[in-house]
Design a protein around this nucleic acid. Structure first.
Lengths: 198, 198
DNA sequence: TAGATATGCGGAGGATTACTCCGCTTAACA
DNA sequence: TGTTAAGCGGAGTAATCCTCCGCATATCTA
């Protein structure tokens, strides 16, 4: 059923180059706040025709997704690296802070994550499992180590981070985001010495 | 400079009625997920012409804002009431949970709050101060009572709630939101018996 | 009640944007 | 170097936002 078209030829070099130009142009535009830039304009800035844009990306959403996919994958890769070099709860904390830094540098991620955790729209569906698996691995390792209460859904952390990233435009947001990371970790510790609610 | 036009006549009854019809129609559409419904369609469903819609609401954003304004104001009113009947930290907690319930019932609020805390777009600016004042009052009362660390920005809580509300579409989001409220409160307590992070 | 008039209604239509289609160009292969 | 198909470009179509202006009617005055 899954008719995979096997191409005998190597993909054309100019095609790949144009595709990359389009991605770079769109990413730059989104980062600078031009989120609803006309696609004609994206094509023009990338130095290609509008037809070429639509050849590579079926519609606006497909282009946006392609831009965000790459960023999310890099974030997931960082988590794997952190998990190998830090104790569990530190890895979790470090990744969440990295998350914040990442958003600080490139505010492109927020909508992607929103769609990711929301899960309703088919957009970003491909990366969803990767990121979910990432946070799941970090949290479950911290739980096994006794640093985090076991009754928490790892997705809770992701949801909180998504929230932070969604308000990235506010002036003092970055400090706020760092505080929230610590609050989340502090509030998720098992009730050893302190008294938890109820 | 602020040339306020003083109208001698009472506003026409049909005008007010049509405006309300438009608001109700738009609200219903947004709640049912038709967020990018054409405005022509909104006007049609409301039984008025497109010109009438634009007479009452300058553009799409103005219509959306008008829909959300009312919801936010009601939320702020609830906080005032809670503050008068509950001890500080309980009032904060109750309001945050009410927030969650409110979103559960009507998922209309999320984008409004996003714009509110983000602050960049002029949208929702009018309600921003109201909600900010609301959370500020709740948190500062809890701080004075010694339930919450004093080094937290009240907006942090708002930002976290906005995050929760932005992912309201996911299946298990409601339980997650409640857990997050408790995590936030637990993580915000002053370090009395337990040891806080650095 | 009837006339005057400003407030409000309605929808045609201009401008903008998303997306399609198809003939031409050019990189990959023999 | 010739063949071939992958890829390019932009004119054109459809959908949507928003404006404009003549017509209708609710409110006010007498």
């Amino acid at each position: 059923m899954d008719g995979e078209k096997i191409s005998r030829r190597k993909p054309r070099s100019d095609g790949q180059r144009n595709r990359q130009h389009l991605l770079d142009t769109a990413k730059a535009a989104f980062q600078s706040g031009e989120t609803d830039i006309p696609l004609d304009e994206v094509a023009r800035r990338a130095g290609v025709g509008i037809g070429t844009l639509y050849r590579h990306f079926a519609n606006r959403d497909a282009l946006i997704e392609a831009v965000y996919r790459n960023e999310l994958d890099r974030l997931a890769a960082a988590a794997t690296q952190l998990a190998g070099t830090h104790p569990p709860v530190e890895a979790l904390r470090a990744w969440m802070l990295l998350f914040v830094d990442y958003i600080a540098a490139k505010q492109v991620i927020a909508p992607a994550l929103n769609g990711l955790v929301g899960g309703t729209c088919a957009l970003y569906a491909a990366s969803a499992e990767i990121i979910k698996g990432t946070i799941d691995g970090l949290v479950s390792r911290a739980v096994k180590n006794g640093d985090i209460r076991p009754d928490l859904d790892p997705l809770d952390f992701l949801r909180a981070l998504v929230g932070v990233s969604n308000v990235a435009a506010a002036p003092g947001w970055e400090a706020s985001a760092r505080r929230l990371v610590d609050i989340l970790i502090a509030g998720s510790q098992p009730p050893t010495a302190s008294q938890s609610r109820t």
